[in-house]
Design a protein around this nucleic acid. Sequence first.
DNA 1: ACCTGAACACCGTTCAAGT
DNA 2: ACCTGAACACCGTTCAAGT
Lengths: 182, 182
Amino acid sequence: MERIVAAAREALEADGPEGLTMQAVADATGVRAPSLYKRVRSRRDLIRLVATDAIVALTRDLDAAATTGDARRDLAAVATAYRAFAHERPEAYRLLFSGAPGEEPIDPELNERSSAALIRITSELAGPERALPAARLAVAWAHGFVSMELAGAFRLGGDVDAAFDYGVERIVAAIAGSAPAG
Amino acid sequence: MERIVAAAREALEADGPEGLTMQAVADATGVRAPSLYKRVRSRRDLIRLVATDAIVALTRDLDAAATTGDARRDLAAVATAYRAFAHERPEAYRLLFSGAPGEEPIDPELNERSSAALIRITSELAGPERALPAARLAVAWAHGFVSMELAGAFRLGGDVDAAFDYGVERIVAAIAGSAPAG
DNA sequence: ACCTGAACACCGTTCAAGT
DNA sequence: ACCTGAACACCGTTCAAGT
């Protein structure tokens, strides 16, 4: 079971979504394709298991990054960890945001936990009542940036790393600047 | 040929990417599937044609929105038009950012034209030398926001429209605040 | 010149049959 | 209880044959 998800995950990263076939997973686990259906309901379900594995790993990375003791630096560290995860497992990362209306979403609790660290940070920076929209600002920017990067959408040249640093700095300022006090 | 792309576009929006089959397009255009290969190189090529159609339409919408005469209001109007396009043609919108490393990118010239209006705006707001990173900040945020919205990723409740307005306001401020003068 | 039936190599999935 | 060969309904794509 664990081996199945691991094989699926590797097939996905190696050959993209259409490389994640039941055949490929069966070959990698030394079994025939029909046998997989004893462990997994369907290919779609298997993809969901890979996505769940990915969001757990991402959450761990983000939590580990948010430990500098300073909210602004935490936010920058979380953004950097977020981007690093997307670079390490681009196909799995894509999976997390590919949910179409018809599809079953990932476990809502895991989803909530994945943004807990960020919301704690934005709550500190922008105040509790602004924490949610501020977190959405940050994660929308971060997701947009890395997903464009992965899609090769930054074709106008320029330094992409510098654009990321500029973005982090501006997002931190934008969130801190939206606090009721300032 | 035009009818083929239109049929593909409708199949895509109606049934998602896996609904865009050569069979479906053939049925809709009153022909047998093999005949499509006289007009189109492959299914992948047909998808590219739909994506090209989408980026042209999006560019038209963005250009039409950026006509208020005020850079700040133009930026808000462009962001709103961008989001509206994604809501109207969600599957086509998804297509624009689904480019994996192996795939042929869309015509670079069309891509450049699609961001011309935005870069003019950010150039006004943040100065010419900051125009590109500022535009990337804006488009990354906007893309991230709408793609999360389309993926159903805003599951923590709250007012999504209000979060968008908050985001627009903060992004405008962040870009204007990064100008060398202020 | 244009269209198509038949065919090929793939998919995901089911299920009766084997151990 | 577990695995699998065979089969089914689909894909995308090719190509010889028909008009």
